[in-house]
Design a protein around this nucleic acid. Structure first.
Lengths: 165, 165
DNA sequence: TAATAACTTTAGACTAGACTAATTTACTGC
DNA sequence: GCAGTAAATTAGTCTAGTCTAAAGTTATTA
């Protein structure tokens, strides 16, 4: 039962509103997603049919366990991508969020896992960490001359040379 | 004049067919994109209206200069992402292509540029290159113990220690 | 408690993009 | 040069997702 990007957006928005307000109203979602109220009503009915939310007409909106599970997964993906874009690629936070928001519906779980592992490594690895350039992200601006070698490479090579003596 | 993902797919498919066959036919595109012939006809009319392809009914399909420009850009994005997924994250080539195919319509140019810079660095940097694990991609499996340090980090530290003596 | 405001839903229209079935056109081999 | 086949187009249908406008429901407050 694969949800469309659009329905995933609704579900995620509901989750995010509930995190702050304990229960969501249609208007909250409409504002958040910048769509008409009637579009929300429409989406809610579908999500109810899929047993992802609890919602009677004119009533508040809450998530079912399954809805919560899926929403959390979406939020997780969103955060992983936002993180990757800002931390590794040093993309500004608005663009990073926008990109995350669209690709989170597309990239399969296994691939997101790889992003997580990669991010973890970057954070744990001494050498990786050292190469992080404030405001530019991991390594992005690190290649500084025509020799195709960054400062860290050169340092490394010098050390290699010394330690091989 | 932003094209939809779907129209971009058609344009890219046309480009790829033309690369091999000098001119494309509707059936080629239909097979490539796995859609009905009539869907292709439909898309072609829109692309003609946008001056991205040359095509008279029942005739062959070629790209206009503008169409070529856009198609090339799409192919470029596709390749950058495929590269990133296979080379850095060590995703299998099918999945990598699928992911590339969907996010190429979404990620803005500036962000793709960052991916390129990142890939370039990974290829140029001695230390980065050394950490590439065959079959697992750059660094992915490099963190091997509870000390949160990979082999390369340790090596590096040992060298640091020796060279500081 | 009645009026009003705010919210929600319904009804109906529209668009993009796909499909099938029927028709039209172009090509190929005799 | 014509018959048969392959390809392309047209016509019409369907779905998902959006919208506006109107009507219905709930909540607030005088």
């Amino acid at each position: 039962m694969k949800l469309s990007s659009s329905l995933e957006d609704y579900l995620e928005a509901i989750y995010n509103v509930i995190k702050v307000k304990t229960a969501a109203r249609a208007t909250d979602i409409a504002k958040k997603l910048n769509v008409a109220n009637s579009s929300v009503t429409n989406a809610l009915q579908i999500l109810v049919n899929h047993d992802l939310i609890n919602h009677a007409p004119y009533d508040i909106i809450t998530l079912t366990p399954e809805g919560t599970r899926i929403a959390k997964q979406l939020v997780w993906k969103h955060e992983v991508f936002r993180d990757f874009f800002t931390t590794v690629l040093a993309i500004d936070s608005d663009t990073a969020n926008q990109c995350a928001c669209s690709i989170e519906h597309i990239i399969p779980d296994e691939v997101v896992e790889r992003f997580v592992q990669y991010l973890d490594f970057e954070r744990q690895c001494e050498y990786g960490g050292k190469r992080w350039v404030e405001g530019f992200g991991f390594r992005r601006n690190a290649v500084t001359d025509e020799n195709d070698q960054c400062e860290v490479c050169k340092e490394g090579q010098e050390k290699d040379a010394r330690s091989e003596k």
